[in-house]
């Protein structure tokens, strides 16, 4: 197994378990390269990677941009403010326009679920979903899996609690699927107003709790989601203060965790909401590790989708 079985990465379930492990293995090689003084590889020289971001994003876009540059691809940013879509051009037309420019790989971030699929129908390029609406964000899940695997040596059997706005979170959408595919046990911890209608869709290894304190002592990973105030139409909880009291984590709750348990967060953190400032500072090494791993994982996906072989990296 030395290539991905999927042509695009739109959903975690586009990948097999083997695909996921291959990506994580390749990412590990790239992560080592990222620690070197000269971080550039010639492997994607002459290939064009378009960052097609229709939603404001700095962190993810920059991560993809750095990943493309480290592989010597020509990276182009096609951002919402500068794009034709602001002038009323449809996604189909924009995709066909980009296709006519012969791109090799397109990373799309859009506020509407399913939009990456529209690109696959209108372009020859490989597509990576950089986050679509409330649906999926597979590269975030891959970098999270990478981080957990580096920390614990394996994913199988880990107990992971995901806390926060599960219903509106594409991060959770992908992470839950990735974790269950690799054999972890997941507890979704949130008020009922922040849960999707049917969490049982994810299977028997996923459970639900409304009381973080009940679950906390069991967990290997406490994954805190950002409360995305911009994506919540009707206030699903009375106040940030009450949310922080019921579901937020500070030093007190941290003390209840297993000694080797870790706190993760996709960033950016709302200090004082899902995590207190003290908790952020205590967890910060790992949160920044996630960011660092993000570049390596994205390099790995670009490399593999454009036909690279794992054994070709060692230069």
């Amino acid at each position: 197994m030395s290539t991905l079985s999927c042509k695009h990465v739109l959903n975690m379930r586009d990948m097999t378990v083997e695909d996921i492990y291959l990506t994580l293995d390749v990412a590990k090689s790239f992560k080592e390269i990222n620690e070197r003084p000269i971080k550039k590889l010639p492997t994607l020289r002459g290939r064009t990677v378009v960052n097609f971001f229709l939603e404001p994003s700095t962190r993810t876009r920059t991560s993809f941009e750095i990943a493309a540059k480290r592989l010597s691809a020509d990276g182009v940013n096609f951002a919402a403010s500068a794009s034709a879509t602001a002038k009323g051009e449809s996604l189909v037309d924009t995709a066909q326009t980009l296709d006519a420019m012969s791109c090799d790989l397109v990373v799309i971030r859009h506020k509407y679920a399913g939009s990456p699929h529209i690109l696959t129908q209108n372009m020859r390029a490989r597509i990576i979903n950089g986050g679509d609406g409330k649906h999926q964000h597979p590269t975030q899940a891959l970098l999270d899996l990478f981080t957990m695997r580096e920390r614990f040596g394996k994913i199988e059997g880990l107990k992971v609690g995901i806390v926060g706005d599960i219903a509106h979170s594409r991060v959770a959408g992908s992470l839950v699927e990735g974790l269950t595919m690799l054999g972890a046990e997941v507890t979704l911890i949130a008020p009922p107003t922040l849960l999707p209608a049917r969490p049982d869709y994810w299977g028997t290894s996923v459970s639900v709790s409304h009381k973080i304190d009940d679950v906390l002592p069991e967990l290997d990973v406490l994954y805190m989601l950002r409360i995305q105030l911009e994506r919540i139409e009707q206030a699903p909880f009375p106040s940030l203060r009450e949310y922080a009291r019921l579901f937020g984590v500070g030093t007190e709750r941290m003390a209840k965790m297993k000694p080797d348990a870790i706190i993760m967060h996709p960033g950016p953190v709302n200090r004082g909401v899902e995590l207190t400032s003290e908790a952020v500072d205590a967890a910060n090494n790992l949160l920044l590790y996630q960011v660092n791993a993000g570049v390596a994982v994205r390099m790995a996906l670009m490399y593999l989708l454009l036909g690279g072989k794992p054994e070709g990296i060692s230069e």
């Binding site: 679920a113 609406g133 649906h135 209608a197 049917r198 869709y201 009707q234």
Partner: peptide, 18 residues
């Protein structure tokens, strides 16, 4: 509200407003 698919499995599966 702005629901576009049935609330339940399909809204969970596709990440769409229910």
């Amino acid at each position: 509200a702005n629901g576009v698919v049935n609330e339940g499995l399909v809204s969970t599966r596709l990440g769409l407003a229910s």
